[in-house]
Design a binder for these strands. Sequence first.
DNA 1: TATTGTTATACTCTATAACTATA
DNA 2: TATAGTTATAGAGTATAACAATA
Lengths: 143, 143
Amino acid sequence: MSTRTPSDTGRIASELRNVIGRLVRRLRAEHRFPLTHGAVLGRLDREGPAGVSDLAVREGVKPQSMAQTVADLEGEGLVSRRPDPSDGRRMLVEMTATGTAALEEDRRHREGWLATAISEQLTAEEQRLLGRAVELLRRISES
Amino acid sequence: MSTRTPSDTGRIASELRNVIGRLVRRLRAEHRFPLTHGAVLGRLDREGPAGVSDLAVREGVKPQSMAQTVADLEGEGLVSRRPDPSDGRRMLVEMTATGTAALEEDRRHREGWLATAISEQLTAEEQRLLGRAVELLRRISES
DNA sequence: TATTGTTATACTCTATAACTATA
DNA sequence: TATAGTTATAGAGTATAACAATA
């Protein structure tokens, strides 16, 4: 119906920035493990063992930050590290049985509010729209 | 055409959580003033002077956190505080000329990447979709 | 007692800098 | 030299706790 002007783009950016701040605080308040911890476990589960730098690139954080994340996860017994047989510099990070269980627990807990909010606050049509929008946001975040 | 199953909801929640983490890191890396600082300035600009508790509720943070944010903004000369004439407990927070200028500067800087990314990475149709999705996310974040 | 606001303190998450070890 | 990883440190952003002043 209407055309998008440049100021619409700015308004969307502004509101998106605001709403992202809110969502992050809400997600943190649910204080399961940190966002990145959950993301790493999920990735290891889907894609198998990986190096620290690989994980850092995949999650869009610095290698030093990922090293800390991995150290935390190891401290909690959720992952284990072993040297890469083919490259003495690399450490292969892989999930433990405890980690798998924690991931399952986290998946259930996610239903705790974000997934629940999506299914309860949005109509089926809106859920589809959100699903498409998430892909757009991913594209933007990786640009 | 297809129906959404509960697992779709979980998948959307999972991917949304991941993409939000990425966006927040990107936004932080652009290090204008903090997300909440910009949000407070924008609100004061749109809605005029407000109390600290009002702002805390509007932005979804604790009053203590907002007091710190307001103190930071005042330290930078972007807002000023004066006692509410009608209620000795309240402090009215209002923008300074410097704050208004900083907000304008921030609005221009937003074009720096989030707004630019939206206008360059997305088609007009996708921008419309994202605009609608932001409203859905707001509803979820406030639920 | 309830509300508004502040200060002090701690925690979470990520970044930068400086380093070791292997390639 | 370049790459994988680590440790140490700092910073941003928000929370909780304890408090003062006013209603």
